[in-house]
Amino acid sequence: MRLSYPANVKIIQVPCTGRVDIIHLLNAIEDGADGVYVAGCLEGECHYISGNLKARRKVEYVQKTLKELGIEPERVAMYNLSSAQGARFAEIANEVVTKIKELGPTPVTNKKQNNAA
């Protein structure tokens, strides 16, 4: 399909989004990622029955934690698409990058000037 998506999206493959844990998402934010999103299978179509539903709940937990810490919860998101939806994959990547760019760089930088931001 030769679809392009932003080069600043780093993909980490997992066998199922059920493998993604809260700590993985938090570690990404902790290590300075501006945003993290989980791309799981369509709801109801998980090969392992509920991996993508569990992933969504974990994403929601992390969003709640970020909110508690005064960080935009939108920096973490969950999307559902099938592996046959290449065009949707590129669309989501663009959508996320645009949204994160609007939010600006992560405030998790260990630099004091961020307090003012």
Binding site: I23, E30, V108
Partner: peptide, 19 residues
């Protein structure tokens, strides 16, 4: 698990605060 989550959450908060 919860120890890891608390640790990461505190680190995020402190990095955000610049300390």
């Amino acid at each position: 698990k919860e120890v890891e989550i608390l640790s990461s959450s505190l680190k995020i908060a402190r990095k955000k605060a610049g300390i």
